[in-house]
Design a binder for these strands. Structure first.
Lengths: 341, 341
DNA sequence: ATGAAAGCGCTAACAG
DNA sequence: CTGTTAGCGCTTTCAT
C-alpha cells in the first residue's frame, strides 16, 4: 500500500521470511503452503502492494492470460456487441483482451494480419467474421493456438453464429405468410463473397424460401448494400427510382439497411407498412425504437460463448471449442403487414 | 519460414555466427552493427521466422509497447469510434491495444479498475469519459504512466474533446436563429453528474444561450434520457404525453436521443420539421440517413489524437500530452425549420 | 563492430 | 511444507 518503488516477489519473500517459491505458491493459491504461512505472505504482499509482473510470469510459464480479438471494425453494431460479450467473459476469468481492428473487411492488405502479431502475445484468438486470405488463415492455424470464429464460418475454425440461411428464410417466410408475393431483396455485398460467406447464406435462405413458395427472385428488385444504413439509403434510392413496379415487401439482409430503406421511404411519402412491408435481420438497437420487424440475434451472447469455449480449452478441456449455432428469433413489430393490393 | 519450433534469439545468433547482443541490435535497427552483418542476421532471422518474444523484451526493458483503453462500453457509437481511432494510430506505431470495458458508467464497483490491471501491462492509458471514483483516479495517477482522457474531462488528466458547452450553444442558437422561442430539451442523465460532466456542460450551453436570448428553460419541456435511442423514445413519450403545450423545437443532447424523438414523433403523426424542429449533437452514423440536423463531432479523430499524444510522450517528448479541444460543426439537414405558428 | 555476462521477475522441478 | 536452483528470452553495460 505504500512507496513508489514497485515490490518484486523477492521483496515479499524477504519481508515474509520465506523463499520466492513459497511466495509464488501462496499468491497463486497453490497447495503445499501452510495456512499460516500463506496468510502471512498474503498480508505482506498486500501491504507492499505486490502484483506479479505479467511479463515475467509469461516468460516463465509460456502463458499470457491474454486472448486476442481480431475484428474488421469495432465501431459497428455487431462487432461492438461481440467484443463486449468477449470482454465480460474474459474479465470474469482474469484474462486480458488484446484488440486488433483491421479497419475493413479486406481493405488494406499491407497490414496483413500475420502470425507475428499473435505469437507469444496471446493464448487464443477469436476471429470476427471477416474475409481472411488463405495465407492469413494458414498463418493463423500455424500458430497452433485455439481459434474460434464468431459471426460467420472461417475455414478450419469452429465458429459460433446463427444459421444465417435459416434466419433469412424465417424473415422471408414471414413476408410470405402475410400474403406477399412481390418481394424485393436488399442484400449484402459480393466482392468478398469467397471468404465472407454471410451475405451468400442469407441470400440463399431468401431465394430457397421463395422457390419453395413457387416464386423466384426478380432481378429488378435485387439491390446491393453493404450492411450499413448509409448504403441502405443508397440502395433504396436505386430501388425506388427504378421504373419497374414496386414490390409490396422487401427483405433486407441487415437491420441497418432496412432502417436506411425506411428513412428513404419516408422521405418519398411511401407508407410503411401500408405501401411497403420491410423486414431485416439482427435486432439492431435502433430496430425496436423504429418499430422494425426483424429476425433477431444476440451478438453479446455470441462473444461470451466464444470466450467461454476458449477459456475452457485453455484450462485443459480439449474439445471445448466447437461449432455452436445459436438461435435466432422472429420479432414482429410495425413494419410488416399484409399487402394492400 | 519453416519448422514448428519457435526460433529464439539464440538460434538466430548461432545460425548467423554472432552473439545474441548483435542480433538484438541488428533486428532493432540499432547502430554499431556493420551493414553486412546486419544483412546476414536479418536474412537468417527471416528464414527462421524469428520474432522477438514480447514478454522477454518487456521484462528486460520495462516497456510493454501496449497502450490500454478503458471504456464504459465498447458497443456505443462514440466509444466504438474512439477505439477505432486509437487502434489505427497504435497499429501504425506497432503498439498493442489492451481493452477494458467496464460495462457501464459506474455500475459494478466490484470490478473496480485498480492499478493492478495497469501495472506492468501497459505503458500508457486512454480513459474514455466516464465517472471514476476518487479512489480509482488516485490509483490511476499513482501508476505514474501517461494518461489521457477522451470525450470528457477527467480530474487531473489532459483530455481531448469538443467544447460541449459551445456545441450545445451552437445547436440552441441555430434553433433561435430559425425563430424558435419555445424550445424543449432532451438532456442526458444526472446520476453520475459529479464525475461524468458532459451532460452538465451541454445543459449549461443550452441554458446560457437561452438566457442570452431573454428566454429561460421551461421545466415541463425538460426531459431526461441517457443518450440512447431507446431512452430517447421514452423521453419523447413523456414529452408528448404531457398536457402542457408543445414546444416548437427540441434540442437533444445526443443524436441517438434525437432519433428516438423522431421515431416517436412519426408514430404520432407529428411532422418534422413542420410541427416540430429537432436538433442533436454528435453526427451519429444514422443522422445523415435520417436527415437529422446536428452539431457534429469526430470521435475517431479524438482517438487518434489521444493515441498520438501518448505515443509522443512515450517517445520522450515530455509535454506531448495536453488538453486538446477539437472543433465541432453545425450540420443543417432536414429536421429543423422555422416554426409554423 | 562485436561479444560476455549480468540481470529483468517469475515459475517449476527437484531436494530436503 | 519449504527452499534451491535453473531457466524463460531478451537487453544492456562493459570489455575488447
Amino acid at each position: 500500500m505504500r512507496g513508489l518503488m514497485v515490490a518484486s516477489i523477492e521483496d515479499v519473500a524477504a519481508a515474509a521470511k520465506v523463499s520466492t517459491a513459497t511466495v509464488s505458491r501462496a499468491i497463486r493459491g497453490l497447495p503445499r503452503v501452510s495456512p499460516v504461512t500463506r496468510a502471512r505472505i498474503l498480508a505482506v504482499a498486500d501491504d507492499l502492494g505486490y502484483v506479479a509482473s505479467p511479463s515475467a510470469s509469461t516468460l516463465a510459464t509460456g502463458r499470457t492470460r491474454t486472448i486476442g480479438v481480431l475484428a474488421p471494425f469495432v465501431d459497428r453494431w455487431y462487432f461492438g456487441r461481440v467484443i463486449e460479450g468477449v470482454e465480460q467473459e474474459l474479465r470474469e476469468h482474469s484474462y486480458n483482451l488484446l484488440l486488433f481492428s483491421l479497419g475493413g473487411y479486406a481493405s488494406d492488405r499491407q497490414r496483413l494480419f500475420n502470425r507475428n502479431m499473435v505469437r507469444k502475445q496471446m493464448d487464443a484468438l477469436v476471429v470476427l467474421c471477416l474475409s481472411l486470405s488463405d495465407q492469413e488463415l494458414e498463418q493463423l492455424h500455424r500458430t497452433e493456438i485455439p481459434l474460434v470464429a464468431v459471426g460467420g464460418p472461417v475455414s478450419g475454425c469452429s465458429s459460433v453464429r446463427i444459421d444465417d440461411s435459416l434466419a433469412a428464410a424465417a424473415a422471408t417466410q414471414h413476408l410470405l405468410d402475410l400474403g406477399h408475393r412481390d418481394i424485393g431483396h436488399l442484400h449484402g455485398g459480393w466482392e468478398d463473397q469467397l471468404n465472407f460467406t454471410v451475405p451468400g447464406l442469407r441470400t440463399e435462405g431468401f431465394e430457397s424460401t421463395l422457390h419453395a413458395a413457387g416464386l423466384g427472385p426478380r432481378s429488378e428488385w435485387e439491390v446491393e448494400g453493404d450492411y450499413t444504413v448509409r448504403n441502405g439509403v443508397r440502395a433504396a434510392v436505386r430501388l425506388f427510382d427504378s421504373p419497374s413496379p414496386m414490390p409490396t415487401a422487401v427483405f433486407c439482409a441487415s437491420d441497418e439497411m432496412a432502417l436506411g430503406l425506411m428513412f428513404e421511404a419516408r422521405r418519398r411519402g411511401i407508407r410503411i407498412p401500408e405501401d411497403l412491408s420491410i423486414i431485416g435481420i439482427d435486432d439492431h438497437e435502433f430496430s425496436e425504437p423504429a418499430g422494425l420487424t426483424t429476425v433477431g440475434q444476440d451478438p453479446t451472447a455470441h462473444g461470451s460463448i466464444a470466450a467461454r469455449m476458449l477459456i475452457a480449452e485453455l484450462a485443459g478441456k480439449t474439445g471445448a471449442v466447437r461449432d455452436s449455432v445459436v438461435a435466432h428469433q422472429l420479432i414482429v413489430r410495425g413494419t410488416t403487414a399484409p399487402p394492400c393490393r
